[in-house]
Simulated scan of single mutants.
Amino acid sequence: MDIRKFIKSFSYALTGIWTASKEQNMRFHLVSMVVVIVAGLLTGLSITEWLILTLLMALVIGTEMVNTAIERVVDLASPEIHPLAKDAKDVAAGAVLVFAVCSVIIGLLIFLPKWL
């Protein structure tokens, strides 16, 4: 294994995270993640609850990054408006929405009993 290539791959990944963080929806998800972390610290969550929330946050952020990548590739491949390009972008955005909504529901199931 070439360690220089391996380390360089982390550089590319960090650049990808930085690039995605410039997107409006990604910034919303990142702010939401900070709010959840602060709320979790103030609420005193169990290890299991932290594991669940960490997994959910990673899934939402990761899915948003894949959505951003799909949008960029579609825009590159089809600069003009095309129904299939629109479908691809809409489906990717829908995947993010599914994860985000499910994450909110699970978050409420974790937090509400502790708050009420």
Rank of each mutant, 00 (worst) to 15 (best):
M1Y: 11
I3N: 08
R4I: 04
K5I: 04
F6H: 12
K8H: 13
K8Q: 12
S9W: 00
Y12K: 12
T15M: 10
I17T: 11
W18L: 12
T19C: 05
T19S: 12
A20R: 01
S21P: 09
K22C: 07
E23K: 08
Q24T: 13
N25Y: 09
N25R: 12
M26S: 07
M26A: 10
M26V: 13
R27A: 14
R27H: 05
R27Q: 14
H29S: 12
L30W: 00
V31H: 01
V31C: 02
M33L: 09
M33R: 00
V34L: 15
V34T: 13
V34P: 03
V36N: 01
I37H: 01
G40H: 01
L41S: 01
L41W: 04
L42C: 07
L45F: 04
S46K: 10
S46A: 15
I47K: 13
T48E: 13
T48L: 13
E49L: 02
I52Y: 01
T54C: 11
M57D: 00
M57N: 07
A58S: 14
T63W: 00
T63R: 02
E64S: 14
E64P: 02
M65T: 06
M65L: 10
T68L: 08
T68R: 09
T68N: 15
E71S: 11
R72V: 02
R72F: 06
V73K: 15
A77K: 14
S78R: 10
P79N: 08
E80G: 05
E80K: 11
I81Q: 10
H82V: 10
H82F: 07
P83L: 08
L84W: 07
K86I: 15
K86G: 06
D87V: 15
D87N: 10
D87C: 06
A88R: 11
K89A: 05
D90L: 09
V91R: 15
V91M: 13
A92Y: 04
A93P: 02
G94L: 11
A95M: 10
A95I: 12
V98Q: 00
A100M: 08
V101L: 15
C102P: 02
V104C: 03
V104F: 11
I105K: 00
I106F: 04
G107S: 10
L109G: 11
I110H: 01
F111W: 06
L112I: 15
L112W: 08
K114S: 06
W115N: 03
W115P: 03
W115T: 10
